[in-house]
Amino acid sequence: MFKGLGGIGDMAKMMKAAQEMQGKMAKLQEDLANTMVTGESGAGLVKATATAKGTLTGLEIDPSIFNAEEKEVVEDLILAAIKDAQEKAMEKTQEETRKMTEDMGLPAGMNLPV
């Protein structure tokens, strides 16, 4: 009639796996918030530092580029460094998420919310 309660055991395994995944995702979120990436522009004249989650935490500008006549160039370099840091943050997040899904035996390319 109930065929040995096999479905309940499978459900318990699924619940345990879901809890493990939730714990691993929380750990990944914490790790990404503490991992720093640095983007650069102008051959390192401007550097932007961000967490791997994309939060900008620092901006370093070489004083040699401060020239009132070059204001637009400086602004472009700052934006380029920030964009580079954001791209590196996204790449790091994707890399760490991919590693986690592989470690858990999930299909490659499975998009987990991070």
Rank of each mutant, 00 (worst) to 15 (best):
11 M>T: 10
11 M>Y: 14
11 M>H: 13
13 K>Y: 00
13 K>C: 00
14 M>K: 14
18 A>Q: 14
19 Q>W: 06
20 E>Q: 12
20 E>V: 09
22 Q>E: 15
22 Q>C: 06
23 G>M: 08
24 K>H: 07
25 M>T: 08
25 M>I: 08
26 A>E: 15
26 A>C: 09
28 L>F: 06
29 Q>G: 07
31 D>E: 14
32 L>E: 01
32 L>K: 00
32 L>R: 05
32 L>Q: 02
34 N>V: 11
35 T>M: 11
38 T>V: 13
38 T>E: 12
39 G>I: 02
39 G>V: 00
40 E>S: 14
40 E>A: 10
40 E>F: 11
41 S>N: 09
41 S>G: 10
42 G>D: 09
42 G>I: 03
43 A>V: 11
44 G>W: 06
44 G>Q: 04
45 L>C: 10
47 K>H: 07
48 A>I: 04
49 T>R: 06
50 A>G: 04
51 T>I: 04
51 T>V: 04
53 K>A: 02
53 K>H: 03
54 G>L: 07
54 G>W: 02
56 L>W: 06
57 T>H: 05
57 T>F: 00
58 G>C: 01
58 G>I: 01
59 L>Q: 01
60 E>M: 09
60 E>S: 12
62 D>P: 01
63 P>G: 01
65 I>A: 11
67 N>Q: 10
68 A>K: 15
68 A>I: 06
69 E>S: 03
70 E>I: 06
70 E>D: 15
72 E>D: 08
72 E>V: 13
72 E>A: 12
72 E>Y: 14
72 E>Q: 08
73 V>P: 03
73 V>M: 13
73 V>T: 12
74 V>A: 02
75 E>F: 12
76 D>I: 02
77 L>D: 03
78 I>W: 08
78 I>E: 05
79 L>D: 07
80 A>S: 12
80 A>E: 05
81 A>T: 08
81 A>M: 01
